[in-house]
């Protein structure tokens, strides 16, 4: 994966929002779809970082999260890696079923999968790669901005 931006983030929930803001701001020049950035990417990345901080590193101040971003022409890739033992994403139940809907947790992975175009875990389950496709501008957009 190409690394256009690499951040080392402390295992502190308060650090997540700042990291996401920084990445979204860097997207500005390459973004054709603001809503996809502000909703899909922002929330998807926040969920990946929150999982890494809370469940991967368990807020251990001695552990860090590595965030790598690739700004591609028509997509953004983000890889989030924690120092935890990893988990099997296939064991996370669907939070939208009647038996699970009142559970307070379990929506992070669901949101990532529904908001991003690709969600891939490594074998250990401590590193997730998110891909969001951004559509190129149409000819009409080109004409409007000319």
């Amino acid at each position: 994966m190409r690394n256009d931006l690499v951040l080392e983030i402390p295992s502190d929930p308060a650090a997540i929002e700042h990291a996401v803001d920084l990445v979204v701001r860097r997207c500005d020049n390459s973004a054709y779809c603001r809503r996809k950035l502000e909703l899909n990417f922002r929330v998807g990345l926040m969920e990946a970082l929150a999982n890494a901080v809370l469940y991967g590193n368990r807020e251990d101040p001695g552990k860090r999260i590595r965030l790598e971003i690739a700004f591609l022409r028509y997509s953004i890739e983000a890889r989030v890696t924690d120092e935890g033992p990893g988990f099997d994403p296939e064991t996370v139940p669907d939070p939208t079923t009647p038996e699970n809907i009142e559970r307070p947790g379990g929506r992070g992975l669901f949101l990532m999968r529904n908001l991003m175009d690709e969600v891939r875990y490594n074998e250990a389950g401590n590193s997730v790669t998110l891909v969001l496709h951004l559509e190129p501008p149409t000819q009409l957009d080109d004409a409007a901005s000319a």
Binding site: L39, R42, V43, M46, E47, A50, L54, I101, E102, R103, P104, G105, R107, G108, F110, L111
Partner: peptide
Amino acid sequence: GYIDSSGLGVLVSLSK
């Protein structure tokens, strides 16, 4: 502006 899954979880828990 937005709510993440932890925020949604708190709303579910409070509602209950």
